[in-house]
């Protein structure tokens, strides 16, 4: 049954890809959920994470797994820096003015990366063998990406549910004024949430390179920004967990629908998989206008 075998193989890869997509989206949802900021510079931060993994690996032979905490630290500090220099001034301004700011920041980061590292497409090969599932082969590095994505998501979940900070963040999301009255320092929560969002995003850049270890270049982020937007809304914008679920669905759709679409003559089946994925997004939104795990209203 080559058809079913291929479908199964594709779905396995789709699930791995979906987990990576999911993690790459959580930062975006986190920032939107708390600050109502649409970070159009999202992809630039993923690019920074990818370059972190690349340079650590090629310059210092540091295992990409160890780059994950390094990227997190870089991301957190960048998040704080960006928040206190730019974003703080835009709280309370028209909602979209922050979009202009993140647009500028995204371009600036891309151009800085090009300025320092050049526009080359780089990559690294971290070959640690693969597991043979008889229907398909999966490199361990991709399995690690899968596992790490889930672990990171779970850690984040417990931070949000179990700690005081997490409670405060959720309180701000629910009711900003109320939280303020209860003595929550909203600006600090904003700063923290923004930093965590960027930290997650940069970190996910490392995991992206575990899945796609090549083609690392200053402009690589654009594609991820686009998908992250769509996945975020699929899951219910302000819910990072929804983002994770949305990532899964998107990954499975992209890879799974190929096997069926390739049976049609005179089409480009792989391009159509994206059509299918985006169409399903629209259908889901029509059935449930606030996404899979979104709450009421906006």
């Amino acid at each position: 049954m080559p058809f079913l075998e291929q479908l199964a193989g594709n779905l396995i890869y789709g699930a791995i890809l979906g987990a990576v997509y999911g993690l790459a989206t959580m930062g975006l949802s986190q920032i939107f959920g708390v600050l109502k900021i649409v970070n159009v510079g999202h992809g630039a931060f993923i690019m920074l994470g990818a370059f972190t993994a690349y340079w650590m690996f090629t310059l210092y032979s540091i295992n990409p797994m160890l780059s994950i905490p390094i990227a997190l630290v870089i991301g957190l500090s960048m998040g704080l820096a960006v928040f206190y220099t730019v974003i703080r001034r835009l709280i309370g301004a028209p909602e979209l003015s922050s979009l202009l700011a993140t647009f500028g920041i995204g371009i600036f980061l891309e151009e800085l990366a090009k300025f320092f590292w050049g526009p080359d497409h780089r990559g690294y090969t971290w070959n640690i063998g693969s597991v043979n599932l008889s229907i398909t082969l999966i490199p361990y590095s991709k399995l690690l990406a899968f596992g790490m994505s889930i672990i990171i998501a779970l850690i984040l979940y417990s931070i949000f549910q179990k700690t005081r900070i997490g409670t405060a963040i959720r309180a701000v999301v629910e009711d900003r004024e109320g939280a303020m009255v209860c003595g929550v320092n909203v600006t600090r929560i904003y700063a923290l949430s923004f930093a965590i969002g960027i930290g997650l995003t940069v970190m996910s850049g490392v995991l992206v390179t575990l899945f796609v270890p090549v083609g690392i270049n200053p402009y690589m982020g654009g594609e991820y920004t686009l998908k992250a937007f769509v996945i975020a809304v699929l899951g219910g914008l302000s819910s990072p967990w929804g983002a994770f679920v949305g990532g899964f669905i998107f990954g499975l759709l992209e890879n799974g629908s190929y096997t069926i679409l390739s049976l049609f003559p005179n089409v480009e089946p792989f391009s159509l998989t994206r059509f299918v994925a985006f169409s399903v997004l629209l259908i889901i939104l029509l059935v449930k206008p606030t996404g899979l795990m979104g709450g009421e209203g906006e």
Partner: peptide
């Protein structure tokens, strides 16, 4: 004879079919 769209992240579906 198959194509993939711009900026692919995973070519597995195409490659497993090609392998066959």
């Amino acid at each position: 004879d198959k194509t993939y769209p711009k900026n692919p992240t995973d070519l597995t579906p195409l490659l497993s079919e090609m392998k066959a």
